[in-house]
Amino acid sequence: MTFRQHMRQMTASALAEFPHGLESGIYTVTFRIDAVDQDCRFHYLALGYNTEDEVARLLAEPSAPEPWEARWNYAYFPPSGLEGIRIIGNHEEHDPRGAELHRQEARADGLWYEEDDPEHIQDERAEILCPRFHELCVDLARRLHADGDLVRALGRPVPVVLYNMFDPDAMFALTRAANPPELVADFLSADPGEPGS
């Protein structure tokens, strides 16, 4: 099994871990892209969701955020959306199989590096590993749509929001690339690069 196949399998199976009875209230699946110690060798995906009930709770608070912020800004996501329900990727504690596969493939591709390697080698390889993981996450979200996993799990298509708290500007481009346009129109309405935003 390849790292990509492992990620695909784990991502699809994680949808089955969403709590039963919430299906009608889940309006988005969340992909938080992160890395242990912000090291591109140790990228992982925290997969989760957010619900209409959570948005309603936020909007009912005395100092409520703006509606778009309550719905789409990860700063307001509950643990199910921010921390996720499953961590997948090169994370030794939460996904040892994924960690093993990722290291094997990075070594085979000549992209792994050690702490004592020259800094320019580390930088060059990190510049390939980081975007490569982002592209993989976009592809995983596309597959959830194309293969019908989201509809099977939730009864309807929902957007997958991809975000990286250390590169917040990337969330619009990643989310746009990962979803059918009609599912992310509201999310993209706040994209500073979009006309009329």
Rank of each mutant, 00 (worst) to 15 (best):
residue 119 E to Q: 08
residue 166 F to L: 01
residue 102 H to Q: 07
residue 54 E to F: 10
residue 165 M to K: 11
residue 43 H to M: 10
residue 157 P to G: 06
residue 91 H to F: 02
residue 135 E to D: 15
residue 172 F to E: 10
residue 87 I to C: 08
residue 46 A to M: 14
residue 64 A to D: 08
residue 74 Y to C: 02
residue 41 R to D: 09
residue 64 A to K: 08
residue 155 G to L: 04
residue 85 I to D: 01
residue 119 E to C: 00
residue 59 L to P: 03
residue 108 A to G: 14
residue 155 G to T: 09
residue 102 H to L: 01
residue 172 F to N: 04
residue 127 E to W: 04
residue 99 A to T: 03
residue 153 A to W: 03
residue 153 A to Q: 06
residue 75 A to N: 12
residue 74 Y to P: 00
residue 96 P to K: 03
residue 50 N to G: 09
residue 43 H to W: 02
residue 45 L to Q: 02
residue 121 I to H: 11
residue 149 D to L: 03
residue 53 D to E: 15
residue 131 P to M: 07
residue 66 E to H: 13
residue 120 H to E: 14
residue 57 R to A: 14
residue 47 L to G: 01
residue 166 F to C: 01
residue 73 N to H: 15
residue 121 I to A: 08
residue 161 V to N: 02
residue 131 P to H: 04
residue 144 L to H: 11
residue 121 I to M: 11
residue 114 E to D: 14
residue 69 E to P: 00
residue 103 R to Y: 00
residue 69 E to L: 09
residue 172 F to A: 02
residue 137 C to M: 12
residue 62 P to T: 09
residue 140 L to F: 03
residue 119 E to M: 09
residue 116 D to Q: 14
residue 176 R to Y: 04
residue 144 L to Y: 07
residue 131 P to C: 10
residue 122 Q to S: 06
residue 139 D to H: 14
residue 113 Y to A: 03
residue 94 H to M: 12
residue 161 V to L: 15
residue 152 R to L: 05
residue 175 T to D: 12
residue 103 R to I: 01
residue 99 A to N: 06
residue 135 E to W: 03
residue 72 W to K: 00
residue 88 I to R: 11
residue 137 C to H: 09
residue 86 R to W: 01
residue 143 R to D: 11
residue 155 G to I: 04
residue 101 L to V: 06
residue 44 Y to Q: 01
residue 61 E to M: 13
residue 108 A to V: 10
residue 105 E to F: 07
residue 53 D to N: 04
residue 152 R to F: 05
residue 141 A to I: 08
residue 82 L to Y: 15
residue 172 F to W: 14
residue 99 A to F: 03
residue 71 R to A: 14
residue 147 D to V: 07
